[in-house]
Amino acid sequence: MNRKNLIGIFILAVILPFMLLTSCTTKQNWTQFRGSEGTMSVTASGLPTEWGTGKNVLWSADLNGTGYSSPVVWGTKVFITSTFPEKVNPAPERPAGPPPQAVQGPQGGQAAQQGQRPPQPAGPPVPEVRDTSYMNEIYKWEVICFDLATGRENWRQVAYQGAPKAGKNQNSTYACETPVTNGKQIVASFGMHGIFCYDMEGNLIWQKDPGVYYTQRGWGTGSSPVIYKDKVFIQADNEENSFLLALDIATGNELWRVTRDEKTTYSTPFIWKNKSGTELVTTGKTARSYDPETGKLLW
C-alpha cells in the first residue's frame, strides 16, 4: 500500500472514533472546522483517548488521495475532501552528503592589509522566483461521503480535474480546507480551484470561481468556509488582493465582498455570538469583526 493511501486511512481511522461517539451519544453534529461552534469542544463524555489497530477503531476507509482537511458529520453521513495526483513532476534531485559549507574570507582591516577588497554593503534583496512547474501537473479534487456507522462509501464527486491553478508548499496538499454543512448543503472550498456546493446526496447545486491570486511563497490556501444562516463566508488573504466574501448558500450568488488590508493568512472566520449580537471575526496581522449580514467593519 502506498503512502497516499495510508494518509487517507489514517485520517478517518483516527478521527472518526471521536466523531462517532460524539454524534451517536449526544445527537450532535460536527459541521465545520473546529466543530459546530468553532470552539473545538464537545459536551460528550467517555470518548476514547487511545486508538490503534483493533482498538477503538470501528472502521477505516481508503481515500486514494491526500488532504489535511478534517471530516465533518451530519446525522449518518461523514464528508471529507481529498486530492489525487494523476500526473506529477518528479521530485527534485538532491546531492548526497551534507550541504557545502560557505568559505569565510578575511574581514575588515585584515582584508585591506592583504590588498583584498573589503566586504561590501548588502545589495537590494534578490527578487523571489515564482515556481510555475505545477502547471504541468494533473490532479483530481474530490468530495466524498461515507456512512457513519459502517464506513460504506455513499458517493464520491470530482469537483475539479486538471492542472493546478496555483502552487502549494511541497509538504502540504491541495485539500487543506475543511468542508462545512448545515444538513441541507455541503460546501467544499478548494481555494483558487473553486467553491462547490452539493446536496446531501452528492448532486452539485452550484460552483463558484474565486479567482487566482498569489499567496506567500506560492504555498497555497487553507482557510475553511463557514456557514451562518443563509450565507457561506470565505476568507481569502493573499499577497495581492485579500478579501472576505459572503455567498448565498442556496444559489452561490455573491452577497457582499470587502477588501482586507492583510497579506497571506490561513485562518478560518469565527461566528461570535455575544450580548451585543452576532459578529464575524477574522484574524491576521490585525483581528477584525464584521457584520455577517452586510460586511460592515465593526471593529
Rank of each mutant, 00 (worst) to 15 (best):
C176V: 12
P121Q: 00
T283S: 15
R217P: 01
N89V: 08
I234K: 04
L58A: 10
Q116R: 11
S45I: 12
T178D: 06
I138P: 02
P92A: 10
D261L: 12
P121R: 02
T76A: 12
Q185Y: 11
F84L: 07
V143R: 01
N2A: 13
S267G: 02
K229S: 11
K285I: 15
R130N: 14
Y266K: 01
S82T: 15
G191W: 06
K4F: 10
A163M: 00
A13S: 14
N274K: 12
K296P: 06
V187R: 01
F190R: 04
L6W: 13
W141H: 06
A250L: 09
N238W: 04
E50H: 15
S45V: 12
H193F: 01
S189L: 00
Y139A: 03
Y290F: 15
Q104C: 09
W272M: 07
A13N: 03
D248Q: 08
Q110R: 15
M1D: 13
Y228Q: 00
Q207L: 06
D261V: 05
G191L: 02
V73P: 00
Q170G: 10
T53L: 11
Y266P: 00
G38Y: 07
Q113I: 15
G38T: 02
G35Y: 07
Q101N: 11
A246H: 10
N5E: 10
T286M: 12
N253S: 14
F270K: 08
A236H: 04
A188K: 05
D261G: 06
R94K: 14
W51Q: 03
G46W: 10
S60Q: 03
P119S: 11
G67C: 05
N203I: 10
S133M: 07
L297S: 12
I9C: 04
W206A: 00
T268F: 02
Y160T: 01
G252H: 07
G211L: 02
S224I: 05
K231D: 00
I144W: 02
S276W: 13
I9G: 06
M192C: 03
D199A: 11
G194K: 01
C145Y: 07
I7W: 03
A236F: 08
C197F: 04
L255N: 11
E50L: 13
E86Y: 06
G123D: 03
T83K: 09
V232T: 01
Q235G: 04
Y174D: 05
P98Y: 02
Q207S: 15
V258R: 13
T286N: 14
M19W: 06
L245R: 09
G284S: 14
L148G: 04
L297V: 14
V42I: 10
E142C: 08
R217N: 13
K275Y: 13
T294L: 00
W30F: 05
M200F: 02
R152Q: 15
Y174T: 08
K229C: 09
E86I: 01
I195Y: 05
Y213P: 08
I9S: 00
T31L: 10
L20Y: 01
A112P: 00
R94E: 12
T173Y: 09
W51N: 05
P92M: 11
F190P: 07
G151F: 02
K168T: 07
P85A: 12
N253V: 10
L16K: 04
V180M: 08
T178R: 07
I205V: 15
M40D: 15
N64Q: 13
T286F: 12
R152C: 05
K77G: 05
T259W: 08
E177H: 01
L247V: 08
A236G: 08
G202F: 06
T43E: 05
P90C: 05
D237P: 02
R3L: 15
